[in-house]
Design a protein around this nucleic acid. Structure first.
Lengths: 362, 362
DNA sequence: AATGATGGCGAGAACGTTCTCACATATGAG
DNA sequence: CTCATATGTGAGAACGTTCTCGCCATCATT
């Protein structure tokens, strides 16, 4: 009836006239019990409004059936979708989800990981904010906590990982622009963390075709690399002045940096934005500057956001399978938690070019 | 150095040559300890890579420092923002966040609440999917689990609650349209759950000015009520044919239902959409029908989504303080968890009308 | 008839903390 | 000198489960 306060297994056992061991067996569904006692216990539990205490259970079993996720920012559509994917498979498997934001800052990330580890999550999904140093993640591995990385890799950290094939996707997008006759294509990218030698050196190496360790590059650098490859393949020169570095992961930063490029004498005829946030900032800037798409300027965005399909014109975009990425990551993590012992896997998901109306043929 | 496997307080105590009680005092920061032993313990903990087990701690203290949230769908910008707000204050207070999706279906919601309760969260934030029956929430209250409702109320459930002042907000939006000269204004609303007597009876009662228990109405019905009030105040008749019921909470449903209204002989000159999802569906339909905003049709949307500011034209909208709502809810919940004992509070947050370019003066 | 396997049950130990004691020792007031 | 008070410590009991035993039936097999 009225479940007053918390009833424990001992209360149920007393009410049913059995030992706590038997009540535990019935309620926990492990070991043998006779039909008779089973019914008694179940009835008593019902009457008392018994609800198992997952804490106590986890303490002894060592399993919490909870996944921890460190995302950049739940509010960002990219993470929101990924999280929904993770949530889908977690829920289907009876797992709970402990979620935190890192705001792409490592101190917060470290703190989050520590919190989740203390709460004894069975595994972690992280979008690491620093692809170089990640002591906290290494020590997690050393402790044997299953870990899956999303969107980015960490140098020297051999764990399961799922990401978009950024280089191929960006290359495809930019080649699409080139095929449409564009010769001067601007790229609006975050490029927040410094590559060795800086942007210029990176451009020089990439343009020269020097081998680049691309696995542990930040997504925005990988997409820049795809942009450069497209140029190389199509035999087009890369003008460093067309590489726009927002310098921070915010729409405002992108918005601030776009006008200088657009209003320059040798302005590009097309723009490629490297993620949803850059896309937003760029769109804001274009509205401000009253540039029409695609008459004044063509654009291809990375990551298909809801509004891109009903914007006028429709925005041609490279859609990454965000939901599926989250689902894949969660599935891989659950496999590890179940104890499966593959060597670390990297799942690179293909992105799909969705043609709409934002690219003009020249 | 290398934190091999899990070290317990007993391990640390042994290594430091003190009792577990003393080690616990140092590590847990409760009770007296001498500087000398403190240092020994801390050093031992450091060496062993000791990490407190929050499970064991929670089991005995009865507090998990974890908040549970049942949202409709993390992927939806409304919930994503609210969650970010909740996350902000949770994090600032050292609380973790256990998040689940209900997909606005009560069976899933019940299951979520049960899961979170078993995991012993200190309090719950829920957007109830049924405003009438909610046995699981009542029993939560009976068990003494702090609970805060967001966006919606539940009949007979007296708990803290934060929501937008939907009626006032909708009224303001629609009056804005009327002031611009519009006389036939369509409303695109979800209106998924049946009001007593159905939509027609509701309209009749509202138009007649009958008292309506508006507190426990679904948001979309409240916004419809605001729409009707605006008409009453401005002395305009309400044409039931202008009330578009999507019937389910999806952009597709809205998109499917808009064309019939727009292409009718006595089509409205303006549209009011009652939430972000309806707005999206409506925008899709308008693109399909090739209607220009605001030349062919004016529009005001409820809930300011990112793209509305850089869409051309800018979309005039009623912005609800989503982030602040989440923050307020979390703060109220934390107060309850701390044991503060006000009578149940209802916080109605004002929405702000943001004028952009989607409303034509007639 | 003796043996072993199997179902069913309870006592009590674990899990890793915090908390309640009891018991020191030191300090200061009367 | 005695008593109260504050500071420091350790033994051991909680918290609510699951798990390991050991015990006792029952039943089939030698």
């Amino acid at each position: 009836m009225a479940p007053k306060s918390k009833a424990t297994i001992a209360d149920v056992a007393r009410a049913a006239g059995v030992s706590t061991a038997t009540a535990g067996r019935v309620l926990g569904g492990y070991g043998y019990t006779s039909e008779e006692k089973k019914e008694q216990v179940l009835k008593a539990a019902q009457n008392l409004g018994y609800r198992p205490n997952a804490l106590a259970r986890s303490l002894i079993t060592g399993k919490t059936r909870t996944l921890g996720v460190v995302a950049g920012d739940i509010q960002n559509p990219f993470y929101a979708s990924v999280l929904r994917g993770v949530s889908n498979v977690a829920e289907a498997n009876g797992f709970g989800l402990l979620i935190t934001n890192s705001d792409e800052a490592q101190p917060k990330e470290v703190h989050s990981v520590e919190l989740l580890a203390q709460k004894q999550v069975d595994g972690l999904i992280v979008t690491p904010s620093d692809t170089r140093r990640a002591r906290h993640l290494h020590s997690l591995r050393a402790m044997g906590v299953p870990l899956v990385l999303i969107d980015r890799a960490v140098a020297g950290l051999m764990v399961d990982r799922v990401a978009t094939d950024n280089i191929a996707a960006a290359e495809q997008a930019v080649r699409h622009l080139i095929a449409a006759g564009h010769r001067r294509i601007g790229i609006v990218a975050e490029l927040v963390d410094e590559e060795r030698g800086g942007l210029d050196a990176f451009l020089a190496r990439a343009v020269a075709g020097d081998p680049i360790e691309s696995e542990t590059l930040y997504p925005s650098w990988q997409r820049l690399l795809g942009y450069i490859r497209a140029h190389r393949i199509e035999g087009l020169p890369v003008d460093p002045r067309l590489t726009l570095r927002a310098g921070s992961y915010s729409a405002l930063a992108a918005q601030a940096v776009v006008p200088q490029l657009i209003t320059a004498p040798d302005a590009p005829t097309a723009l490629f934005t490297t993620d949803g946030t850059m896309s937003e900032g760029t769109m804001r800037a274009l509205v401000e500057l009253k540039r029409s798409i695609p008459q004044d300027l063509s654009i291809i965005c990375f990551d298909d956001l809801d509004w891109m399909s009903f914007h006028r014109p429709g925005i041609t975009t490279v859609a990454q399978p965000r939901l599926a990425m989250g689902e894949a990551a969660a599935r891989m993590l659950l496999e590890r938690i179940r104890g499966e012992d593959y060597p670390p896997r990297t799942v690179l998901m293909p992105a799909e070019l969705i043609e709409r109306g934002s690219v003009a043929r020249l």
